[in-house]
Design a protein around this nucleic acid. Sequence first.
DNA 1: GTGAAAGCGCTAACAC
DNA 2: GTGTTAGCGCTTTCAC
Lengths: 338, 338
Amino acid sequence: VVSAGRERTATITDVARAARVSPATVSRVLNGTSEVSADRAERVRTAVVKLAYQPFSPARALRHQRTNVWAAIVADIENPFFTSVVRGIEDGAHERGYRVVLCNSDGDLAKEADYVDVAIAERMAGVVIAMASTRRSNLAPLLDRGIPVVAIDRRPARATVDCVVVDNRAGAAEATAHLIEVGARRIACITGPRGVSTATERLAGYRDALERAGMEVDGALVRREDFREAGGYDAVTALFGGRDRPDALFVANNQMTVGALHALHDRGIDVPGDVAIVGFDDAPWATLTRPQLSVVAQPTNEIGRVAAELLAGGGGGRARTVVLPPKLVIRQSSARPR
Amino acid sequence: VVSAGRERTATITDVARAARVSPATVSRVLNGTSEVSADRAERVRTAVVKLAYQPFSPARALRHQRTNVWAAIVADIENPFFTSVVRGIEDGAHERGYRVVLCNSDGDLAKEADYVDVAIAERMAGVVIAMASTRRSNLAPLLDRGIPVVAIDRRPARATVDCVVVDNRAGAAEATAHLIEVGARRIACITGPRGVSTATERLAGYRDALERAGMEVDGALVRREDFREAGGYDAVTALFGGRDRPDALFVANNQMTVGALHALHDRGIDVPGDVAIVGFDDAPWATLTRPQLSVVAQPTNEIGRVAAELLAGGGGGRARTVVLPPKLVIRQSSARPR
DNA sequence: GTGAAAGCGCTAACAC
DNA sequence: GTGTTAGCGCTTTCAC
């Protein structure tokens, strides 16, 4: 008789009763923790199927004092860079029997702290985090409790945790050097907020390249924005507001690049004729824009997979840092200007 | 004395001891379930802070037989349409005290079934799902157990659950009618796989528009692909392989549109000169392409928020279906061809 | 091999 | 108001 739902969900005791064994035996069969005679095991398996039994994982977690869930806390769930990284984490987690809960801190320290609390309350097995700020961190409560943490993309200033990052400084320097080589003389840099390591490192790389070329770093050509589309738009508006316009742009993340391109278009500024441009992070649509966009591409999937590997390693011993190489992809937006 | 982590995490009993009250009183203070004298409440709060106590939610879940977590199971986490919808769900969930776990079925029925199992094992409070297939569903186990379900984007053929969808048929018809009006005579439709309602409905809308205009539906101009970028690419390759090329394209999702544009570019086909094109789903970069992309935009955030509202409503009574209007956004890619 | 029993952390029912 | 108690579903001793 199939009754219309809503009957009490079967527990291990129900299965035990149906199989005429003890709950302990059911547990042993399900987890393979010790030998069980063939016929009893069979009876258990039949009962499990018949009752559509699903172990209640909070009860397990209560026993084990630990879940098999990882939290991935990222600063912006709508940024394709992060979702792609998360894909990598998921793949790595799946292979190791973990599940991944994706949390969106929105770049907000308080929201991030909330999700850290959640991770603790749930006794999650580990946390992968792209921090809202690398200066002020919410990591201490996790570390105090011995919950393994891997920082991705952004490198915490103080806390010593495993990290997976890209060589931002080198990538930015390469991009800037490329703009110099192509003939640009007034190169602007649109980077992210203070207190986010990627923003700082990419700016440092930009400076490196200018200095190596014997060019002066003009403070008026450096804009700190918020890593969002609007930030890129505003930066371009400011940079092209007066005289002494830049003839090239290095933009330190994907969303700001979108904003910058919109602003350039709105002002009728031609790319790469009037300004050459190189962005950070590749995207599926980067070859659909006219001109096609030159970028510093990051190995997103690998970042996630390596993070999963480190997290599974459990943060034992010294904090490890894995630095992956970015790759300059030259397309049309950085063709020789003028 | 700050000891180097790893001491046992504080439990409610520890807090009770430190505050010289019973565990029940601690629980009452924390949950506000009944009045507690001011001084005891104060002692409890002090102890909570001092011990950095965090309630262990699996234990709560065990008591309550229910968590405060919703699962959002989507067919493709890297599709910005879905992440944007998830943002809406999160907003709605947050307001109501729920948290959202994002799960990626990858359009795969087996993975989807896995996540459904997880949702059951965790006794999640609800599930929002963009189904891998609307023909064969994994919903029965959820419904049997009385777990509220809201289907988004895709409408299940059989199961009766709450739905939030867009009027795909009308949106597709409008897009196609626009292409007709602009002078196109051989309009191709690149839609998604059989067994996904959005694919079917958008195709139906395309047919509607042709019929209304007294135009014949040519089967050779209809391609069923997989809603991924590669699908769009392949479709264009096939459509433009022989003679009798289309002079317009209606592409039924964002990722396939990217693929289609790549293929057109690779073949040197001019948009909109040789073919006009309208895609489905808007994107931040849609105005960066040259020509700018005409699309049928969906109210992604609202889809998520409405889903949250329905889920919180708990699926009581008859299954409700909310149909939201899409909006045709005309840009340059659908300018008069030739 | 197997079952009985205890207990993980929390809360709701019940006494006082 | 407050404490005592029982029990949620599961796993893991510990006897047998």
